[in-house]
Computed example of a mutant assay.
Amino acid sequence: MSATSYDTIVVGVGGMGSAAVYQLAKRGVDVLGVERYDIPHSRGSSHGDTRIFRLTQPEHPEYVPLAQRAHELWRTLETESGTDLLTKTGSVHAGPQGGRMVEDAVRSCEVHDIDYELLTGEALNERFPGYNLPEEHHAVYQPDGGFLACERAITTHVKQALKHGATVRAREAVENIDIDESSVTVNTTRGTYTADNLVLAAGAWAGSHLDFLADLLTPQRRVLGWFHPTEPAHYRPENFPVFSIDVPEGSCYGFPVFERPGFKIGVTPKSPEAIDPDEWNEEPTLDDEQRLRRFPERYFPGAVGETMRLASCIVTYSHDGHFYLDTHPEYPHVSVAAGFTGHGYKFCSVVGEVLADFATKGDTENPISVHQFDGRL
């Protein structure tokens, strides 16, 4: 089969890849997006109805300008498409007084002069009755946080990209990528394509496409739960901020009820196990449900009625917790977005912009030093 040529090929059309295809097409680039599953799909980390958006960034203060730019781009996409994507609820980071969660959240706000309130657990519970945190805990409340409708955002990025002339092909797995000094060739289950530039946004499969990433990425299984609130008014978006909390039982995060019935919660395991993204237990179990329920039973007691839904996803960890966003160490016409470590979705819009910058300009003005490969390989 003869090769079809494009300016840029994007491998993976999930949260990050869909934004890259959109940004490239909007700039007039002849771009192909290739996705091994559906658009959107449920076998990666860009599904589950909602994903947290927050300006508070305890992971590193440098994340804050990226989040601010992402916010601008999400709102721009909403305006261009006429689609609601980002719902503002405020965000909460909470944990023991003096703990890393709270201290790092405060630091990220203060370094970038972001409005926030530092509350006791008691004060937070009084303001938002859906919460039942320990009174002596502290919480950082930031009013601009909220959540993104994640599948809707992927669909919107792709629809807008198609309007700008992009080609997107789903249900087409990449079998091999050949890179030379000035171009790339991508072989898939359906054809062969060449391009001047490659963008790799393949999630848990990134390491199978570029060898140097294989030891830098660890895919892990996560399960999310939706439980019908026994006190529904406390868990509406206008009454309940999204949250990330550290408590003695571990760490969890969650959302108010939105469209689908149920308060949504996810848990970060204390001892997560690596998985093969092609062979893993996607179906949630009764044990998964019981582990999830322990957190709302103690800290969100008005939210643990009947189970509405369970869903699994893949979280791909980087070796140091900071995601990778850079050009290939040897081939500057190849760019990579990978290892988002469970806190990446909010950045999809700006990651797409950065990847488009790499493909069209070779560099970006967005602050990404903590995410580059230098000193990390």
Rank of each mutant, 00 (worst) to 15 (best):
T192N: 04
R107H: 14
F258L: 04
A359N: 04
N366K: 15
A195K: 00
L85C: 08
R260H: 15
N176I: 00
Y141R: 05
R309K: 15
S271C: 05
R107P: 01
S271Y: 10
A149N: 14
Y253I: 12
T341I: 06
R171P: 01
G99R: 06
L216M: 09
T360N: 03
P40W: 07
E353P: 06
P241S: 02
L85H: 10
K159D: 03
R221N: 01
G302D: 15
V247E: 09
L85W: 14
L133V: 09
A170G: 03
E126F: 04
G99F: 05
L377Y: 14
K26I: 01
A202T: 06
L200T: 02
G121I: 00
H343E: 07
H371Y: 15
L200G: 02
H343F: 11
G12H: 01
Q160L: 07
V242G: 03
Q142G: 04
A67F: 05
D276V: 05
V102Y: 11
Y317Q: 13
N132A: 15
L355Q: 05
V11E: 05
H319T: 13
S81K: 11
R171L: 10
L66M: 12
Y141H: 14
L162I: 02
G121Q: 03
Y324T: 10
I179Q: 10
A19R: 00
V111Q: 03
V13H: 02
Y193V: 00
M1C: 14
T89R: 07
V257T: 15
E110M: 13
M308Q: 13
S312F: 08
H138E: 15
L325H: 08
D113S: 14
T192F: 02
T79Y: 13
C252V: 06
P129Y: 07
A70I: 08
D288N: 11
F240P: 02
Y131F: 13
P232M: 08
L66V: 06
E35R: 10
R298M: 11
I177T: 01
G266R: 05
G339R: 01
F53H: 12
G14E: 06
M16P: 00
P272E: 03
D84E: 15
V10E: 00
H41G: 04
H71L: 12
L310W: 12
R190L: 08
H164V: 02
D326H: 08
D288Y: 12
H328A: 09
V186L: 06
N132D: 14
F240V: 01
R107W: 09
R309P: 09
N239K: 09
S271T: 06
G17N: 02
Q372E: 15
N366G: 07
C348E: 06
S349E: 00
V10N: 01
A274Q: 06
D374R: 15
S81L: 09
G266S: 09
V174Y: 05
F212C: 08
A206L: 02
W226I: 07
E80M: 08
E35A: 10
D287R: 06
G165H: 05
G225N: 03
